[in-house]
Design a protein around this nucleic acid. Structure first.
Length: 503
RNA sequence: GUCCCAGUAGCUCAGCAGGAUAGAGCAACAGCCUUCUAAGCUGUGGGUCGCAGGUUCGAAUCCUGCCUGGGACGCCA
């Protein structure tokens, strides 16, 4: 059927017929199809009103489990902007995955082990003040850590002592262990405050320390399968056949490494949860590590390793550079959130002073702004840290979307009636809104397939824009034959925005 | 050196399983609140889609090479 595109177009045009379609015409190589607005909008609105917040749901997950590894901050350190991305993206993906019918298992793989804790324990013993730490744990511990590094530059012996204390910790020394436990508890309390604010929760807080006594078994399994090769005094798994550098399992001194722990954690999680997929929301600088990790698991004969995915994201940069944790120069998430809420409050006092429960709204707007700012762009883009951008409330922002929702609700509250759909809406003004409402299930699906929350964020902006234009042009509360249908449109928009903002 | 990611308006970014005149937001300028929340809406200006080739009826989108920026490449995590 070798024909000109124009010819094909006009042939197709003659053959299309469907109740949804009003008119078809061929323009050059294109076939333009005009849908019947009344029929389509009636369908869409009825579906949304009926399904409510279930609209867009699907069952492709069939109740299987997906394990998501995200957030994973280091204890005894402040929650930085860098961890925000993993946290927000991870939580969002968990919600998306649930929406398409999976069961999510959210794991916070805390960075709670390593030489750094030896150093911290030693620093605490040298300079620490119990009361101060109790009052403001993270801040105090960070100061101790920073001080340690500063002093260690002049006095390298400190480093040895630090390593020593870590050794004690590993050997189960009681004093060391008590301090470690305490630091961990205090840190978790602080983190949970932030998680509450962000609306994030976890099913497991098993961090690195949890796997300490389980790594020997992993190493045995590697040995049994004859995968461990000696190289330069260290033990590695070769990945030559994949054209990749080998994965280091044991250091020359016999100590284990990151990779060993991650292998162990993966195997443990598979046994524990029988997950269908495992998703790691970790910065893109670790791409190679995860590639290696998954391949080693496959070499060990674990076929489920094929369903493990690294979901990378870009950095948050400061002046074009990665933000460094070391010298205490981090921007604390806590402060940023407080500032955002403050600003939201000012805005409310300024623009909407009569509002009830201002505090609550300010919190929703402030936090919403920060989360949305993080989700709206492609995961992989690096973002330059800018308070100004984060706290912006106009244009492509969370508050814009929330505001749109508030407008919709406001209309509905003025006209309390059972929503119903009669003949649908068929004017040109409402059509863009209808079209977008119709797209929602597809958008959810796409965000799942790509593991990309920004798909939904962009959609919400788009929908809000369409709705605000409609709102500007059409008087909704105008008593005529289409009043019910317009209200149904407003309500449907509200439902979709509200649901969409959950992700 | 090898590998990965990015380069689209002054700025921040969409678009990229190829399709019509490349779209938003911010910033600038000009309008719109006796009427559903102006955190909104309408309009104006602003582009060699990094560069060069190739595939195709058709390329911002696919392929190759180059340039620029970021990242990763064994005893940190």
């Amino acid at each position: 059927m070798r024909q000109s595109p124009q010819g094909i177009a006009s042939d197709i045009t003659k053959k299309i017929e469907d109740p949804l379609i009003e008119q078809v015409e061929a323009v050059g190589p294109y076939v333009n199809i005009f849908l019947d607005k009344s029929v389509v909008s009636t369908n869409v609105l009825k579906t949304i009103l009926k399904e409510g917040s279930n609209y867009g749901q699907s069952q492709i997950g069939q109740g299987e489990k997906i394990v998501l590894d995200f957030s994973s901050p280091n204890i005894a350190k402040p929650f930085s902007m860098g961890h925000l991305r993993s946290t927000v993206i991870g939580q969002s993906l968990a919600n998306i995955v649930e929406k398409v019918g999976f069961q999510s298992v959210k794991i916070n793989y805390l960075g709670d082990w390593g030489t750094q804790f030896g150093k911290l324990i030693y620093a605490y013993k040298l300079w620490g003040d119990e009361n101060k730490v109790r009052q403001n744990p993270i801040k105090e511990l960070l100061e101790l850590y920073v001080k340690f590094h500063k002093e260690a530059e002049a006095n390298p012996q400190l480093e040895d002592e630090g390593r020593n204390w870590f050794k004690k910790l590993e050997d189960g020394d009681e004093e060391a262990h008590q301090l470690w436990d305490w630091f961990r508890d205090e840190s978790l309390k602080e983190f949970k405050k932030i998680y509450d604010l962000l609306g994030v929760d976890f099913d497991s807080y098993n961090g690195e320390a949890f796997y300490n006594d389980k790594m020997a078994n992993t190493i045995n399994q590697l040995k049994e399968r004859e995968l461990l090769v000696e190289s330069d005094g260290a033990e590695v798994v070769s990945l030559d056949e994949f054209d990749l550098p080998p994965s280091l399992i044991k250091k020359r001194d016999g100590a284990t490494l990151y990779a060993t722990r991650d292998l162990t954690a993966a195997i443990y999680r598979q046994n524990q949860y029988q997950f269908k997929q495992a998703i790691y929301v970790v910065g893109h600088e670790q791409s190679l590590h995860f590639k290696q990790l998954f391949l080693v698991l496959q070499k060990m004969g674990f076929t489920w390793a094929q369903n493990m995915h690294h979901v990378p994201f870009g950095f948050i940069l400061k002046d074009g550079k990665k933000m460094s944790t070391r010298k205490g120069k981090v921007v604390l998430l806590d402060q940023v959130i407080q500032e955002a809420i403050e600003l939201a409050k000012e805005n409310i006092d300024d623009k909407n002073p009569s509002l009830e429960n201002k505090e609550k709204v300010a919190e929703m707007v402030g936090v919403g702004a920060i989360i949305f700012h993080d989700l709206k762009n492609d995961r992989l883009n690096n973002v330059e840290f800018s308070l100004e951008d984060m706290l912006r409330f106009e244009g492509h922002t969370g508050p814009y979307v929330q505001y749109t929702h508030a407008r919709a609700q406001s209309i509905l509250s003025k006209y309390a009636a059972e929503p119903k759909v009669n003949d649908g809406v068929n004017d040109d003004e409402s059509w863009p809104v209808v079209k977008r409402l119709h797209q929602f299930p597809e958008v959810i699906l796409k965000s799942y397939i790509e593991y990309e929350p920004s798909v939904i964020a962009k959609y919400l902006i788009d929908l809000s824009q369409a709705f605000n234009k409609y709102y500007g042009k059409v008087k909704i509360l105008h008593d005529d034959r289409q009043l019910d249908d317009r209200l149904a449109l407003v309500e449907s928009t509200g439902i979709v925005i509200k649901d969409g903002l959950r992700y």
